[in-house]
Design a binder for these strands. Structure first.
Lengths: 355, 355
DNA sequence: CTCATTTTTGGAAGCGCTTCCATTATAGCA
DNA sequence: TGCTATAATGGAAGCGCTTCCAAAAATGAG
């Protein structure tokens, strides 16, 4: 034992500690795991030695014995362009990472861009003794495969954002349709007659739902949806800029963009075309990024608490990990319409005018 | 065995596969690990069964036996404000994640904000059987503790960004001093007489080094450093905006900002003060974010390849993991001055004018 | 058709931990 | 003081894998 000890100092095992404390391996294990059945003095003695030698039980051995790794996976199937361009992801990541810290879980991050990545990642994620559960950022058609596999393998799973096939899957999301609807309705109330929208990618549920909200709002105000006023964007600033350029010939006086980042691009395009905001055209974005709220032309937006989305998904996942029999459920978070200078002001802001 | 098999279908072990194939556990292990000493037909038979049952060896057991987890940790000691505000982090993350995919490593992400997090995270990171090595994003004084501990514990380590105490530590960085110097020198060459700088936080090596580059450039052009023209920023857009407001009274005609994000804020402030860019004041940023290069007022900048920084750090870490005797070394990546419309043009762009 | 080599294979130990079960020490009660 | 009930401990098996070592099978040379 001493031998072992010398051989790789600073790399003790339970046995080493047991020797040092003059007790058995089992007892040390009990101390580490806070079992009550250890005599006070013994417990203290062992604890001291552990402290003194900075002992940490080997993670792999623990995982093997307990079939629990205290690690959760986060799969971000990112279309490269938006990951480092739209603060949505970093925000989500922060929320998730913080929650992991809080509950003492480790976060394994998988950024998936190619088909190859996907196969690769899945072969690792599917492996036992590695992850206790998985969070998938979803919304694209392409994710269905991955999600299906998790469900089949009965790996505890939470999806962020409504997936295309949402039966039998726990997911966390906001009510995109109504959130979008309220923004467009607001534009109508302040007098916009030609309200345009720059949508998200229409192969994603977010894109589809926010457009649906726009449609519903227009129809409810007895309007016709004019296809010229609907342009598909891709959640990038450049995309917003280009989309706005397409819209300009049709002279919109209000624009609902499906993300703040696209709204920022669109506003630049409007300014470059010498339009004045909000006099000539009002803007509402979506997300409420920090950057939206300073400088001139502060952006009106639909606030969603992305970090909270992340936190809830972690919490819900942990629940599943701890009780595998929990039934799939949906968690829908609140959003809030935040009006700033990018919209002409509504004079009478009584409640019935806003919703 | 059959019993075992039924009990939890889809969760086979080596033994199960061995039974199914009519060979021993050892043989299956050899097949999985691609040892050559298995007879062709046997290997194929085993492979088929593995395929058929979607067998993946248990990760924890493997880690325990081999003392290798194929997982690396990334510690981002983020000051909350900049993580989801400056695309630097997402970019770095992307580079690292991609490299991990490439080499079939898993990435464990630790976002550290509070002291409590730090202790917490370290107790997990320091544990054996969990991570093969660690990448730390550094540059702040606060990181020294964490870095020191890794070094003490002999955990393979790569630091991104020059740490304050860089002896005995492998790190990956760019030459911030010279990069900043070349930007400021360029401003001088195009005729700016009152060149200001918005620095990064001055408790970070990036902040310090880029300021040092500014200083050196000014001095080399026989200038005096005017303290009124040096304002500390915090790598946020709002920070850039506020810093520029402080600079305006001193009428700078050229501004070097230590990040694109701050430059964007600063330009907004200039525009809000009715200055014209680049006629009244030229700007150079740092990073070359995608957003820098579109719309009006395209930003000149020092391009650094952040994703590559990430990739190199992974590669260097893997080298250390595979050969623990490798000596600490520094890897310095190239930067490039990219001139766009935010600077008045230099008519004669012959090489000697640029550097 | 032997016998010595070389390939292939199976058995068993070991990676470091948890936990069941049996055993010993302690306490409680008559 | 002796006996039972309880608290505290140690031993051993097991989590699922790799790999050393020895045994068995296949090969080739004489």
């Amino acid at each position: 034992m001493k031998n072992q000890l010398d051989r790789n100092a600073g790399n003790l095992t339970l046995d080493d500690i047991a020797d040092l404390a003059g007790v058995s391996r089992s007892t040390v294990s009990r101390v580490v795991n806070e079992h009550t059945s250890v005599k006070k003095e013994v417990r203290q003695r062992v604890l001291n030695i552990i402290e003194e030698h900075h002992f940490h039980p080997n993670a792999a051995a623990r995982t093997l014995a307990l079939q629990r790794s205290w690690t959760i996976g986060l799969i971000l199937p990112h279309s490269v362009s938006t990951f480092f361009t739209d603060p949505y992801y970093p925000n989500l990541l922060m929320g998730i990472a913080k929650a992991c810290n809080l509950y003492n879980f480790t976060l394994a991050l998988f950024l998936v861009s190619t088909k190859e990545d996907e196969a690769n990642v899945f072969s690792r994620v599917g492996r036992k003794g590695f992850l206790d559960g998985v969070i998938v950022q979803s919304g694209h058609h392409g994710d269905q495969g991955a999600i299906g596999k998790m469900v089949d393998k009965k790996i505890p799973l939470v999806v962020v954002g409504r997936p295309f096939r949402s039966d039998n899957v726990t997911y966390v999301d906001i009510d995109n349709i109504n959130a979008a609807k309220s923004a467009v309705t607001y534009l109508h109330k302040i007098g916009c007659k030609r309200i345009a929208t720059i949508t998200g990618p229409l192969d994603s549920t977010v894109g589809i739902d926010r457009l649906e909200g726009y449609r519903q709002a227009i129809k409810e105000q007895n309007g016709q949806v004019d296809d010229n006023l609907v342009v598909e964007g891709n959640f990038t600033e450049t995309g917003g800029y280009l989309a706005m350029q397409k819209l300009l010939p049709f002279q919109p006086d209000g624009v609902f963009a499906a993300s703040d980042v696209m709204a920022a691009g669109a506003m630049k395009a409007a300014e470059d075309a010498n339009l004045s905001i909000p006099k000539d055209v009002s803007f509402i974005g979506f997300d409420d990024l920090p950057a939206a709220s300073y400088g001139s032309n502060q952006l009106s937006t639909v606030r969603q608490k992305v970090a909270e989305l992340g936190q809830k998904s972690v919490e819900s996942l942990i629940e599943q990990i701890e009780d595998e029999s929990i039934a799939p459920r949906q968690i829908i978070l609140e959003t809030e319409l935040v009006i700033r200078q990018s919209c002409t002001q509504l004079l009478d802001i009584s409640p019935q005018n806003i919703k």
